[in-house]
Design a protein around this nucleic acid. Sequence first.
RNA 1: GCGCUUGUAGCUCAGGUGGUUAGAGCGCUACACUGAUAAUGUAGAGGUCCCAGGUUCAAGUCCUGGCAAGCGCACCA
Length: 1116
Amino acid sequence: MKYREYKSPDYPAFAKEVLSYWEENHVFEQSISNREGKPTFTFYEGPPSANGVPGIHHVMARTVKDIFCRYKTQKGFQVKRKGGWDTHGLPVELQVEKELGITKEDIGKKITVEEYNRKCREAVMKFKDIWDDLTRKMGYWVDLENPYITFQPKYIESLWHLLQQLYKKDLLYKGYTIQPYSPAAGTGLSSHELNQPGTYKDIRDTSVTAQFKVVKNEKSALLFNGEEDLYIVAWTTTPWTLPGNCALAVGKKIEYVKVKTFNQYDFKPISVILAKERVNAYFNQKASELKLEDYEPGQKLIPFEIGESYTGEQLFDVSYQQLLPYVQPEGKAFVVIPGDFVTTEDGTGIVHTASLFGADDFRVCKENDISAITVKDDNGFDVPVVNKQGKFVDEIVDFAGRYVREEYYDNETRSNPDFKSTDVLIAIKLKEESKAFKVEKYEHSYPHCWRTDKPILYYPLDSWFIRTTAMKDKLVALNKTINWKPVSTGTGRFGNWLENLVDWNLSRSRFWGTPLPIWVTDDRQEEKCIGSIAELQDEIKKSIAAGFMDKSPFEGMEEIDLHRPYVDDVILVSDSGKKMMREPDLIDVWFDSGAMPYAQWHYPFENKEVFEESYPADYISEGVDQTRGWFFTLHAIAGMLFDSVAFKNVVSTGLVLDKSGNKMSKRLGNAVNPFETLDKFGPDATRWYMISNANPWDNLKFDLDGVLEVQRRFFGTLYNTYSFFALYANLDGFEYSEGDQIPLADRTESDRWILSRMNTLIGEVEEAYEDYEPTKATRAIQNFVIDDLSNWYVRLNRKRFWVGDFNPDKRAAYETLYSCLLTVAKLGAPVAPFYMEKLFLDLNRNVKSEKNLSVHLQNFPQTDGKSIVKDLEEQMYLAQNISSLVHSLRRKHKIKVRQPLSRIMVPILSKKTKEQIQAVEELISSEVNIKTVEYIDDASGIIKKKIKPNFSKLGKEYGPKMKAVAAAINQITADGIAELESKQSLILNIGDEEINLGLADVEITTEDIPGWTVASDNGMTVALDINLTEELKREGIAREMVNRIQNLRKDMGLEVQDKIEVQLSSKEEIVKVALEENRTYICRETQANNLTLVDKIEGGETIDINDYRVNVSIKK
RNA sequence: GCGCUUGUAGCUCAGGUGGUUAGAGCGCUACACUGAUAAUGUAGAGGUCCCAGGUUCAAGUCCUGGCAAGCGCACCA
C-alpha cells in the first residue's frame, strides 16, 4: 500500500476526516480505557455556563487544558476528564427575567417560584449544543457524555454535605456585612445590580465638617500646647451617619498639622487638626496675613496660624469625645485609628468612621477592635441606629422616626417650604452645639437603587459566612505548595488575596441556586444544618410527627428537587420541639464550582474510590479572571475541609485581545468567531498559533494573519516534507519496519546529524511539557521542522531520494526522514491533535497494527542519548556557517551557484576544527558547488589573526582594571599572538603591574587571508577561489544544460520517472565539448536514455546558456 | 488608591546566573536558486532595548523612582 499523496493540503478537511475517524474508532475512550490500572493524572474541568455562546478565548483556554491531558496520556497516565456545567446564579436569573419581562419583585407574584426556576433550568442549557460542537471541532477531549451538572439533586446533596462539615467545624456563621441596601425596596443589592448602567447619579448633599474634641490624656499630651479646645476635624457627605460615629481614621504616613483659628459660626477660638495638604481647602489664603489677636467676632475673613505637625502614626489611639452621644457603645470606641483608604484628595484627610454604614468603616473598626453603635431591637438583637425602613430609631431622640435621606419622604412632604432634611437638621444641631467646623452643599456621584430610583444606604445585613479567616494561615501555607504558571499569579494576585482574606459571604437572596440547608427557630436559639437527603427525610418525618407539616413537599416527586420553593415548604422541629424555618438564602454559586472535586462524583454518597484516586487534581487551568473565583473556591474548600490543596499545578491563562490589543466585544464588532476561524484555518493552525505565539499566561493579540502564517510556515513546511517523502517512497516502494533498519553507524553524517537533533528535540519538548511551558515546546518543534529538517536535511539530501537504485544509502535516507516525521507527529500531537494524527496515520499506512490506531494512543518518544552527538551538531553548524559565507562571496562576485568553482580555503586554528570540517566537507562542496576544501594552518604563515579579551573570565579576575587590560589586549601584535600561542602565556604590562595572560583569557580568531576574497562571521573565515578554468566553465555549461532540460521536461508535463531522449545542437565549440564531457552526468540528472549531438534540429527549442545558443529537442 | 503583569526592529516575539557587533519570524528592498515550487537561499534597510537616576571595570539584564498599557481588587468618607 502506498503513502497517501495529496494535490494540496486542506487542513480543515483533514481535521473533519480525523474527527470522524476518532469517533468511529472511539479513540478518546480508548485513550482512557487503555490506561486502566496505570497511574492517574487528574484534571478538573472548570465548568462553563452554557447560557451564553463560546468565544475564541474559550478555544485558547481549552487548548491549554487539552495539551497537558493529551501529553500525560502519551506519558502513560490514565487521564480521566469529566466535563461539567455551571448552571446556577444571577446571570441565568437576569437572562430569564429579561426574557419574561419581569423583575425580581414579580417573582412569587406574577410568576411562581416554581415556574421561575423551571424557566431558569431550561435557559441554562440553551447553548449546550453549540458548546459541545465547539468542543468537538477544536479537538478538546473531555467527557461530554457524563458531565456533572450543578443543579442536579446529587450535586446539591454533596454541597449540603460539605456545608454541614463546615458547620460542624464551626466555620459557618451568620453575621453582618455592609451591603448596598435599598430601604425603599427593602432589599440588599448585589454588586452586579449596582453596576447596572444609570445607578450612579450626581446629587447635592449637605456635607459637614465636624469637630471632634480631643480628650486630654497621656496619649494625646503631645498634641496639647497650652490650648484647651483642641479638635480633630472630619468631613462627611452623609451627616446622618454621625450618630453612628465610633472612630476617626487617619493615614499612617500623612502629615497632619494643628491650626489655631476661630469657629466661623460661634467665633470661639479653637485649635483643629487636619492634613497639611488640606489646609488650603479650609482656610482662605487672604487671611494668612491676619493676626489671631486682631480677630473680631463676626469678621468674615478668619485668621489662622499653623502650628506643630504630626504624622498619622502619632495620632493613633488618641481619644475624642463622642460627637452625638445618643447611644453608648459597649466596648472601645472614639479613638483615632489607621485607615489604609484615607487620602488627602478631599475632606480633611481624616475620615469619620461609622462602622455599620460603610464597608471600609466596618473593616477598619473590626481590625482595630472598635465597637459599633447599636441598639437592641424587640428580640434583643443588636441593630444599627437606622432601621430597615431607613429611619432613625427611637434612641436617637432628636430625630427618631425621621428618614435619614430626604429622598425617602414623599414629594408632598418635601415640597412643604418648612421641610428640612435630616442632614440639615443635624448640621443645625452641630452648629448650635459648636461642633460644626464647616457646613456646605456638596455635589457628588452616589449609587441609586435601579428599581426605586432612590439613593441606597450602605447598611449591615445578615448573611451567612464561611469563616475563611480562621483558616487563613493554612490556606496561605498550602498555596505555597502549588505550582503556579506563572509564578507571579500564585504569589502576587492569589497570594496577596489570601493574605488579605475576609470571611466568605455565602448568602444570596435569590431563587435559582443551591439552598442553604439551615433551619432556625424563630428565636434563633436553635439551628440545624442538614447534610444529606436522607437526613432531611428523617427530619421531615419527625416534623410531621410533631404536627408541623401534613406531608413532605417532596412526596410524589420522581426525583427529589432540592430547589426552592419546595425546600422552603419544609418546616422542621427543633430538639426542644419548636418550629424551625429554613434560612431563606441561597449560597454563592462559586461554592457550587469550588465543590466540583467532590460533587462531580456525588462524594461521599457514591464513588468514594474514584474520588480518592483523583484528588487532588494534578492540573487545572482557567483564565486569570478565575483567581478570586474558581481557583479560590477550590482552594478554600479543600484547605478547610480536607487539609489539602485542590490542585497541584495550575496554569492561569491570559486574555485574548483583538490584533490591536483591544478587548474583544460584540459591541465593537472586533470579536473573532471561533467557528469561522476553525472552519477557515482548521483547529490545528488555530491552536498552534495560540500556543506558539505567546505564553498562555500573557495576553494574546489574536491576529488571523498570524494563524495564516503558522499554517503556511509550519504546517505547510511539514506537509511539504511529508509529501516529498511520500512521493519518492512510493516510487521506490519503501516500507518502514522498526526491526530491520540500517544501523546508525552506516548512515551518513547528515543522517546521524538530524537524528541527533531529533533526539535533542525530544528532550527539549519533554522538558517543556513537564514544566507546563507549551510555548517553548511548540517553538522547539517548529524550529526543528522548518530549519533543521526541511531547510537543511531535506534540501541537502534531495538527490539521495531521487537518483539511482533503491540502495542501502537511499534506504537510510528514507528511514531517517521517516523517523523524524513520526517523532514530530508524536511530539506535536498534544497541540495539533488532528494534523499530527493525520501525519501519523499516513506514515503508518504500511505498518498496520492495532497499536497504530492513533498517535494519541502512542507513548511519548524517548530520547536516545547515544544518538545525541554534540560533535555532529557542531560540525553541521560549521557547515552551515561556511556555506553561508561562500554564498555571500558568490553573491558579491556575481557567480551563480550553478557554476562550479575549484576550491575554498579555510584558515584553521585547531586540529579539532579541521577534523570537524573535514567530516562535512562533502556537504559543503555540494551545497556551494565547489571542488575542494583546503585548510590553511598556522604553518602557512598567511593567516591574519585577531585577538579579543574574554571579558567574563578576565572581568572576575581584574575587576576595576578591566578597561586597561582590554585596551592592552587589543594592542597585542601578531608576534604577541604567536608568542601567546606557542608559550601558552604572555606577560602584559598594565601601568606598573604585570599580568600573565593565558590562552583561556582571550579569544583568537582568524580575520583575513591577504590577497583573497574572504568573508568572516562567528569567528570563522572563508576564502573563495573565483578563478574559472575552461574545464570549470564547461562543467558550468553542463549544469546549465541540465537545468534547462529539467525546465523543458516540466513544461512538457512529464512525470518524474519518465525517461527521455535528448537531441542537442550548438555552433559553439565549448558547448559541444562541455556536453560530450558531461554526457553521463546530464543523462543521469535528467533521466535521459541518451543524449545526441546533432548538427541541426527540426522543431526544437532554442535556449540561451550563459552567452551561448543551444537548440534542444526532447522526446519521451 | 492598592496588587499583579507587560513595555526590545513597522508587526509578533526570543534574549539562564550582568561580559563588549542585541537576535528570529513576518513584512519591505535587491539578487539568486529551481523535479518539495503557492517552496527555498543570500544580502540590505530597519533599534535612544519606555524614561530618569543608581550599583558595577561592565546593565536590555540588578536596584530605586517615574511613565504608559492591560488585568484584578477596593473605594468614593
